[in-house]
Simulated assay, not measured.
Amino acid sequence: MMFRPLCLALMLLAAPRSFADVSVRDDRGKTVSLKAPARRIISLAPHLTEDVFAIGAGRYLVGAVDYSDYPAEARRIPRVGGYNGFDLERIRALRPDLIVAWQSGNPPHQLERIEALGIPVFYDASRTLADIPTVLDRLGTLTGDTRGASRAAGQFRERLATLARTHAGQRPVRVFYQVWDRPLMTVNREQIISDAMRQCAAVNVFGALPSLVPTIDDEAVLKANPELIVTSHGPGAQSVWLGHWKRFPGITAVARGQLAHLPPDLLSRLGPRMIDGAEALCAAVDKARAAR
């Protein structure tokens, strides 16, 4: 009697597979393939930790780097190192089936050693705000949390489109974004913060500089004469960093009182909260535009 084996075979073919090979292309243009959705993930950047939580896959994180402090649950994840390097033995011991890495923010030589362990690595190299929801979608594929990823990515894209639509055709505002104090540092047009400025109809006064995070001086800021000076660094930046520019009343931003301090981390992390930072930046730009 052949009908029982035949029926069984048909049932197996018709039944949904619990696990299936998954693959995506990362920002290196390389395909990352897994035999099944990732269930033991190590994040090598705070914003990638946020990404994984945002799509609903935070429960799969078994390791993260220093400063992975959002959401609150991220603080309980075992640490595997920080910006200066990783504990490779710790990473090996955690038996990850996926590592998510920041291409421009992690030490290349250590990433090479991690890849030598044979662990699949997904690289994020977001350069625009529009890249962020794409990363969320890809991580959703790798973890099987496609519904949560689609929801988080869709919300990000909708808010981004609203910013662009609201500020389309508005008069540009010249902005200086201060990254650091000593040495004085800013960003050029290729850095993602400049893309946030573009959504607000703002112009980065140091956009043409060749370095991604160039070092400048007070004289350069005086010459650029921005209409708005912004920083989002932590404690002290609002009073000390922005207070420093009050010594130069000839700068238009100072003369008009347009010195803005945005919440820390929102514009410095390339994760889902960056849209919050972009909205806060646009509010500051709108205020500077109205002060003309």
Results as ranks from 00 to 15, higher is better:
Leu160Asp: 00
Thr134Cys: 05
Ala220Gln: 14
Asp218Trp: 07
Trp180Asn: 06
Val22Tyr: 02
Ala54Asp: 01
Gln103His: 13
Pro183Gln: 09
Arg39Ile: 00
Val254Glu: 07
Gly207Gln: 03
Ser104Asp: 12
Asp21Asn: 08
His261Leu: 08
Ile192Val: 13
Gly63Cys: 08
Met185Lys: 14
Ala168Gln: 13
Leu228Thr: 06
Glu279Asp: 08
Leu281His: 08
Leu34Gly: 00
Gln258Arg: 07
Val205Leu: 07
Val213Arg: 09
Gly277Val: 11
Ala149Gln: 00
Val52Leu: 15
Gly29Thr: 04
Leu117Phe: 13
Phe86Ser: 03
Leu163Trp: 02
Ala9Val: 11
Thr49Asp: 07
Glu73Asp: 14
Ser23Asp: 08
Ser43Gln: 05
Ile99Thr: 04
Asp124Phe: 08
Ala290Asn: 01
Arg157Tyr: 00
Trp245Glu: 05
Glu89Ile: 11
Leu13Ile: 12
Glu158Leu: 12
Leu163Lys: 04
Gln178Met: 13
Val24Lys: 04
Asp218Tyr: 04
Val230Ile: 14
Gly105Trp: 05
Ser194Asn: 11
Pro263Val: 11
Leu262Cys: 11
Thr186Val: 11
Thr141Ala: 05
Arg147Thr: 13
Leu209Phe: 11
Leu266Met: 12
Ala161Thr: 07
Ala278Trp: 00
Ala196Gly: 12
Gln178Cys: 11
Ala255Arg: 15
Asp137Leu: 05
Ala153Cys: 03
Leu212Val: 14
Gly250Phe: 11
Gln155Ala: 12
Ala14Val: 09
